[in-house]
Design a protein around this nucleic acid. Structure first.
Length: 205
DNA sequence: AGCACGATTAACT
DNA sequence: GTTAATCGTGCTC
């Protein structure tokens, strides 16, 4: 089975908007019991620095945000709403707190394992939300701070088929109910329009 | 110590 | 379209 090139630390050490855009089409791979589980990233959001009042780093360096201040290419995984884990990738050089949230995936590897973890849900809703991705791929706080750029890792990214500009949609980030402008409306959400993948509409966009 | 709320999800009317 | 679930985090007292 051909293995695509990995995304290395240099990829993540760039401006967050570029990383968020370029992650569209990339492959997210989780290794469970020696098996690959994952798919193609089709939706991301950028959270950039202490100035961005939607970014957790607005609170400065705290136990929770410490990972974002660290080296790029690590996972920032946090818990919210009392039940959901959300997966991010740390971007920018060390010392610049920023990350990209992974919001949606087209699953195409280890589907039987995903089906088990997403039992009762239709295929189209297996990984179409940030919390759902973490449930499907068994990602939780134990992976917070995990290095995505090691050899033989349990979580990493691979190059995929590039997404042309004509197939990329941008818009405001989701779920920022009480975030003040201009941060609430910054078009820092990226979606890939792929054949066979209809972008779902939601009330908050 | 107490409190308000969240980068959400799934179920329900 | 509306809402309960559920608890860690950061802020105030």
């Amino acid at each position: 089975m051909p293995i695509n090139p990995r995304l290395d630390r240099e990829f993540f050490a760039r401006p967050t908007l570029e990383v968020a855009r370029d992650l569209l089409g990339a492959r997210l791979v989780r290794v469970l019991n020696g098996r690959r589980v994952g798919g193609v990233i089709v939706e991301t959001e950028a959270y950039i620095g202490e100035e961005d009042l939607a970014c957790h780093a607005r609170a400065g360096r705290t136990p929770r945000t410490a990972v974002m201040y660290g080296a790029p290419g690590h996972a920032y995984v946090y818990f919210t709403y009392g039940k959901h884990w959300l997966l991010n990738f740390v971007t920018e050089p060390e010392g610049s707190p920023a990350a990209v949230l992974i919001r949606a995936l087209l699953p195409d590897e280890g589907l039987d394992l995903i089906a088990r973890r997403r039992a009762g849900q239709p295929v189209e809703h297996w990984t179409d939300g940030p919390g759902k991705i973490c449930q499907a791929l068994e990602i939780d706080g134990k992976l917070n701070g995990y290095d995505l750029c090691t050899r033989n890792g349990l979580l990493f990214l691979e190059q995929g088929k590039p997404i042309p500009e004509s197939s990329v949609t941008t818009g405001p980030r989701v779920g920022l109910n009480s975030v003040p402008e201009p941060w609430k409306s910054q078009p820092w959400r990226f979606q890939a329009n792929l054949p066979g993948h209809e972008i779902s509409q939601r009330v908050d966009e």
